[in-house]
Write a protein that binds this DNA or RNA. Structure first.
Lengths: 192, 192
DNA sequence: TTTTATTGATTGAACGTTCATTCAGTCATT
DNA sequence: AATGACTGAATGAACGTTCAATCAATAAAA
């Protein structure tokens, strides 16, 4: 028997798969229910409406990313190594969870992503900001705005994972080039 | 009196405005028609269906970007200067045409953006690839895959314009930092 | 010149479908 | 017996799309 929390997760996972495949508008609640093996009505005991479901998924995804990346961070290392770990963790996470990557990509630029949501506390954004702030404090990277730095790095990882995904065949022999991008960014932000 | 092409443009512009504001699914054809001051049926003489309209908009946007950026490129300049011009043109274009920027951002990650569309010839992608290829041939930038390079640069410009747009107030004093990103990327790809 | 015919764009009410959401009834557990 | 999660047919609103009718412009005929 599933606990309530597990059922909630099950609905979220079902919605994630559908949304990555079809987008928000082509992922009816009825289908989400069918995939999750629950009745339509059940979804409405866990979420007020479809918008709340989508925002709930966003919060879930953001938390999962934070857990994955922060667990693999080791503040005792050299910041350069921490940076490469950060990059690799985030890349790995997206490649291990393509539905979360697809969802995040869509959500960020969607009208669901309102100012209100962006101004709410966000464990992942906070972690990323603090991460880069510590690099600045240690004098290892340029003193740019940590918000800017984190968005920059995160959106580059995002793009690269998307490229890897889209051009799986065409670029197979050039996959290494994509990993070079992390050096390229590091060279750009490091303090010599 | 408007010509047929002008009416087509009018429908596209009306849809662009709505989609940037509300997204694809919250931009009904009826509203697009109302904004464009035509009847619903008229839209269907210019586009087979809503999907064709959206793809038509994409092709229009992509062409406008190519025209704007290529007009401001001067192959006789040093490649470094050409790079900064490219960066500035693209940034300017998005800032002058926020609805196109919003649309493009949404479209790229949407299910409308099928493999079929990506494999069709695309004047803008072709221009960007040739641009970076010429930099490589001149030995001014690293010999990375030009497709990778163009996607990388374009998605960075995209992110930065989005940051500027979202954080207009909070980052006003840090706007300069965002322009530094172009140096950061140039330092990363240039050959010393 | 005036009248009639033809063409093709334009209109918007109407249609059928799909969707989010509800709720009266069922089931499982306590 | 009581509680509360679960069910899924039913509902109504919203949407994409159609099409018979209208209109404007041009060509042909008188």
């Amino acid at each position: 028997m599933h606990s309530l929390l597990e059922k909630r997760k099950c609905i979220i996972q079902s919605a994630l798969d559908l949304i990555q495949e079809n987008g928000f508008h082509a992922s009816p609640v009825s289908q989400v229910a069918k995939n999750a093996r629950v009745a339509v009505g059940t979804i409405y005991t866990y979420f007020d409406n479809k918008e709340a479901l989508i925002i709930g998924i966003y919060e879930y995804v953001v938390e999962e990313i934070k857990i994955y990346v922060s667990e693999r961070d080791d503040p005792s290392l050299l910041f350069k190594d921490r940076f490469y770990n950060y990059w690799k963790s985030l890349t790995d996470f997206y490649e291990l969870n393509p539905s979360m990557h697809g969802f995040y990509d869509q959500f960020i630029k969607s009208p669901f992503n309102s100012d209100e949501i962006q101004s709410k506390p966000n464990v992942w954004h906070d972690f990323a900001c603090e991460f880069f702030e510590s690099g600045i404090k240690q004098g290892k990277i340029k003193a740019l705005n940590p918000i800017v730095l984190s968005i920059l790095v995160n959106s580059n990882v995002n793009s690269i994972v998307r490229i890897k995904h889209n051009f799986k065949k065409k670029l197979s022999q050039n996959k290494m080039e994509l990993d070079e991008i992390s050096h390229l960014i590091w060279d750009g932000i490091k303090v010599d």
